[in-house]
């Protein structure tokens, strides 16, 4: 059994002005090769102008089981959204 190459998560910036977005993963022996493999795999049709790779094992994520206590408390803070506020129609630029 041969050594398997570690897994890397790939993030691509589709064009200037946009953030890097997760697109999938690649296997590569090291970071430099991971960038190249990601380039060859995920930008064959001009899909990107910049690539990040991160060892998959290095990602720390929130747990789906903590979802309620993580995200539900934000749901009732309606006053954070501009639509919460009623203004007279004649008011502009606000």
């Amino acid at each position: 059994m041969s050594t398997s190459w570690p897994l890397w998560e790939v993030f691509i910036r589709p064009r200037r002005g946009l953030s890097h977005t997760h697109v999938g993963s690649v296997h590569a022996p090291d970071a430099a090769f991971a960038v190249r493999n990601a380039r060859d795999l995920y930008t064959r049709r001009n899909e990107g102008v910049s690539i990040w790779v991160v060892p998959s094992a290095q990602i720390t994520a929130s747990s789906p089981d903590e979802r309620d206590e993580f995200f539900d408390p934000a749901a009732d803070k309606v006053y954070r959204h501009p639509t919460f506020y009623e203004l007279p129609e004649e008011v502009r630029h606000l």
Partner: peptide
């Protein structure tokens, strides 16, 4: 992802 994203992970 997240080869490790389904089970015990960095925050094991």
């Amino acid at each position: 992802m997240y080869g490790n994203d389904f089970g015990p992970s960095a925050n094991e």
